[in-house]
C-alpha cells in the first residue's frame, strides 16, 4: 500500500481539497479521478500501472496523474515522498489540462515550489482524503 498525502500551505490550507471542491467537475469525471487515486494508493511497489503517472517535462521530481474529463482533463500534480520515497506520494497542486497546456500555465512551477517548501517543513501535509468524501 502507498500512503498518500496532501500539501497544506503556510495557512494550513489543504490546496488539493480546495481545488477539488472548486473544480466544476462532473460526477463521472470525479469517479475516474477517484479510481486512479485509489489504484495508486493500492499499488504494490511492483505494480504501478503503466501510464498512471506522467513525468512533467522540465521538473525532475514532479509528476501528474491524468483523468480525462469534459471539458478539461484533470491532472493533479504530485511527487514521491517527501519523507519515504518508496511508499509515499504527496499531492502538491491541482491543475487541469486543455489542448496540451496546463491551467494555470505555471502549475508545474507552483508544484515544484510546494515540494521545496514541504521538504523544509515536512509537517505541511496531511493524509489524503478521497475527494468524493467531502461534502
Amino acid at each position: 500500500m502507498i500512503n498518500l498525502f496532501d500539501y497544506k500551505d503556510s495557512n494550513g490550507y489543504n490546496v488539493m481539497q480546495a481545488w477539488a471542491d472548486n473544480m466544476p467537475m462532473q460526477s463521472r469525471d470525479r469517479g475516474k479521478l477517484d479510481n486512479r487515486i485509489d489504484i495508486l494508493e493500492r499499488a504494490e511497489p511492483n505494480l504501478l500501472p503503466p501510464g498512471l503517472l506522467h513525468n512533467v517535462r522540465g521538473y525532475k521530481h514532479i509528476m501528474h496523474l491524468v483523468a480525462k474529463g469534459k471539458p478539461v482533463t484533470l491532472c493533479p500534480m504530485l511527487c514521491r515522498g517527501v519523507v519515504d520515497f518508496q511508499s509515499e506520494f504527496t499531492f502538491l497542486f491541482g491543475a487541469t489540462e486543455k489542448d496540451r497546456k496546463y491551467l494555470p500555465r505555471n502549475a508545474p512551477e507552483i508544484a515544484d515550489k510546494n515540494r521545496d517548501d514541504l521538504r523544509l517543513h515536512t509537517q505541511c501535509r496531511c493524509k489524503h482524503e478521497r475527494f468524493n468524501k467531502r461534502p
Binding site: 462532473q26 460526477s27 463521472r28 469525471d29 470525479r30 469517479g31 475516474k32 477517484d34 479510481n35 486512479r36 489504484i39 505494480l47 500501472p49 503503466p50 501510464g51 498512471l52 483523468a67 478521497r130 468524493n132 468524501k133
Partner: peptide, 25 residues
C-alpha cells in the same frame, strides 16, 4: 459513493480499462 449513477459508471469504466491494461502487463 456508488449511489451516484454517473460517479459509479465513471469509476468502474475507468477501472475496467486499467485492470485489463495492467493484467496484460
Amino acid at each position: 459513493s456508488f449511489h451516484d449513477k454517473e460517479y459509479r459508471h465513471g469509476y468502474v469504466d475507468d477501472f475496467l480499462d486499467m485492470s485489463i491494461a495492467t493484467q496484460i502487463k
